[in-house]
């Protein structure tokens, strides 16, 4: 049986606020970006010149842009993988705890409340090669830490700082997912003599796959777009561009370099990449998900 609304306009009216918000805060600025990408403009906007695809051509002729792409891939997949793996492990552990469960769970969720820029500052102080306690400790055990000079170390630093916060978020979802798995399934497997590893791998993990898939998408989007605060406070994209991710480059070229056309072209490419990735994920990975 279906229900009919007497007025035809009411449903539109009800979704109108959301549409207006989307239009003002997404469509309009995104449209501006698309327009800007075809112009060359001085910083103050005093002169504007239509240049067609020149901004894009410049971009794809720039070897640094390809480097930035590689950096972004390494960074995003490391963040997503590490964040999901550690959170899953912690959630499984926290789910097993009998005493003081709430304490563990609360403490593990806590870091999520820390603002990204603040988290960056925190890690920056810890790892600062000149004053950071962690860096000094590593030096003492013979591992020379200087992320101002060593690109790999800089990458490790930004991956850790970006992941740390996200672990809490992932943890929350995994914990909820674990609690939704019927006890009877696990008990039945245990009676059949399945080891705890086997129980996890054959029952728990497949049942968690919708959560894992959801988190994969969310984490990749997070790593692509929202990690710029962390990078800004720790490495500013350095040394020699080894942590200059695409989104950070957009910021740097647009807001510091004041090159609005080039920066707009980059954000369009970035938008396309993430769109494409999301499509691929839904197309190919989601098939393996069991709801």
């Amino acid at each position: 049986m279906s229900v009919y609304f007497p007025q035809k306009k009411l449903p539109y009216l009800l979704v109108l606020p959301q549409l207006v918000i989307t239009a003002i805060f997404f469509l309009w600025p995104a449209g501006q970006a698309v327009l800007q990408a075809f112009y060359r403009e001085d910083a103050f906007g005093l002169s504007q010149q239509f240049v067609g695809l020149e901004n894009f051509v410049d971009l794809f002729q720039d070897p640094l842009y390809y480097k930035s792409m590689m950096v972004t891939m390494v960074f995003s997949f490391s963040v997503a993988f590490l964040g999901i793996a550690v959170a899953l492990w912690l959630a499984v552990m926290a789910d097993r705890v009998i005493r003081g469960k709430m304490v563990y769970q609360t403490l593990l969720v806590w870091p999520y409340a820390v603002a990204p820029a603040l988290a960056g500052v925190l890690w920056w102080i810890l790892f600062d090669p000149n004053i950071g306690p962690v860096a000094l400790f590593l030096d003492r055990i013979g591992l020379h830490w200087n992320h101002f000079l060593d690109g790999d170390q800089a990458m490790i630093l930004v991956v850790i700082s970006a992941t740390w916060k996200q672990i809490s978020y992932n943890f929350l979802f995994f914990l909820a997912g674990l609690q939704a798995i019927p006890r009877s399934l696990i008990e039945a497997a245990a009676i059949d003599g399945a080891s705890s590893f086997k129980r996890f791998w054959d029952i728990v993990f497949p049942l968690l796959s919708p959560t894992t898939f959801f988190l994969l998408v969310v984490n990749l989007v997070y790593a692509f777009f929202e990690t710029f605060g962390v990078i800004d406070t720790t490495t500013q994209g350095g040394p020699d561009g080894s942590t200059n991710t695409l989104v950070y480059k957009v910021f740097k070229d647009g807001f510091i370099g004041l090159d609005s056309g080039g920066s707009a072209a980059q954000s369009i490419v970035l938008m396309a990449i993430v769109g494409l990735m999301t499509v691929i994920q839904f197309r190919f990975i989601e098939r393996k998900v069991q709801y």
């Binding site: 101002f148 350095g238 040394p239 020699d240 740097k252 070229d253 510091i256 370099g257 090159d259």
Partner: peptide, 14 residues
């Protein structure tokens, strides 16, 4: 574009 040029120089020196 001196801000970016400095950035390029910093990268090279590093």
């Amino acid at each position: 574009n001196f801000v970016q040029i400095r950035d390029v120089i910093n990268g090279a020196l590093e």
